[in-house]
């Protein structure tokens, strides 16, 4: 019995090692791997771009991972990835080569059943600093506001703090989720929730709130009427090598930008 198990294990490990070694050879021989990590806001779009790019250029493997803007910047500085993704501007001391691939609006979202049709920037700030805690104060039901923010280190939160909070602190009683997706999921299921997510992810499950009378759309961002927007960045430490450059050129090409536009983002040349 033991022998059988032993033999089985040995055979299995041999097969495994062989198959791994085999594949390893294949992919160092022909394929070029580009590793990308960082902002979870940028990730879904980079993944989409990578999908298209890999179909057209089968010799490339593009590995896209999350981690968050700060982690992406750090990984890029340490050279553990070829490209970093960030959804906030670089801070001083983060010396990297930045490529703006597109712009994205941050929409304040509520449940579709919420009857309120617009908030001012001050009201949003008051909600997230817990000065307004009840929907009654905004002219709806007597019900606690379930506000949701992003966690520390998130690029979306960083941009939200800069563009909306203006130095005021997000209160400790506000709920925290660690991705655009989970914020959206709560807002879509809780009628009393309010949160902020990337404009590109807004669909009919949530309602994007007009801020100071301006509805967040691609055109209102282009004209500059909607102010809560941030760049999506790809980062490289020094000049990117030829393979990485090929991918970047694809993103900035007409086809790449068209893919991003379809996702509700604003192209970098507009």
């Amino acid at each position: 019995m033991v022998k059988k198990i032993g033999i089985f294990l040995i055979i299995f490990s041999v097969i495994f090692v062989c198959s791994c070694a085999n594949k390893e050879k294949k992919h160092s021989g022909k394929k070029h791997t580009i590793t990308i990590a960082g902002s979870t806001s940028v990730m879904p779009f980079t993944e989409k771009l990578a999908e298209f790019f890999m179909i057209q250029n089968p010799k490339f493997i593009i590995d896209v991972q999350g981690g968050g803007s700060t982690a992406g910047i750090q990984a890029c500085l340490n050279n553990t990835v070829d490209l970093g993704m960030s959804s906030r501007k670089l801070k001083e001391g983060e010396r990297l080569n930045e490529i703006i691939i597109c712009y994205d609006g941050i929409s304040i979202v509520v449940h579709p059943d919420n009857p309120i049709n617009g908030l001012t920037l001050e009201q949003v700030r008051a909600i997230f600093s817990a000065k307004i805690k009840n929907w009654k104060e905004l002219g709806w039901k007597d019900r606690r506001i379930d506000a949701i923010t992003r966690e520390e280190g998130s690029g979306t939160r960083g941009s939200f703090e800069d563009l909306v909070m203006h130095g005021e602190e997000i209160d400790d009683s506000i709920m925290v989720q660690d991705s655009n997706g989970s914020v959206k999921e709560i807002v879509a299921t809780d009628p009393y929730a309010i949160g902020y997510i990337s404009l590109g992810l807004v669909d009919k499950r949530v309602k994007a709130m007009p801020i100071d009378g301006v509805i967040p759309t691609v055109s209102s961002i282009k004209t500059g009427a909607y102010k809560i927007m941030r760049p999506f960045l790809l980062l490289s430490n020094g000049d990117p090598d030829d393979h990485v450059r090929e991918f970047i050129e694809f993103i900035l090409s007409k086809q790449g930008q068209e893919i991003l536009r379809k996702e509700g983002l604003i192209g970098s040349y507009e």
């Binding site: 999350g66 981690g67 968050g68 700060t70 982690a71 966690e151 520390e152 280190g153 998130s154 709920m175």
Partner: peptide, 22 residues
């Protein structure tokens, strides 16, 4: 009915993002 954050939740929410002192 109030939300809360546990020690484990704190680690898991922010670990992937954190650098430096964070």
């Amino acid at each position: 009915t109030d939300p809360l954050r546990t020690l484990t939740g704190n680690i898991a929410l922010e670990l992937a993002y954190a650098t430096g002192d964070h």
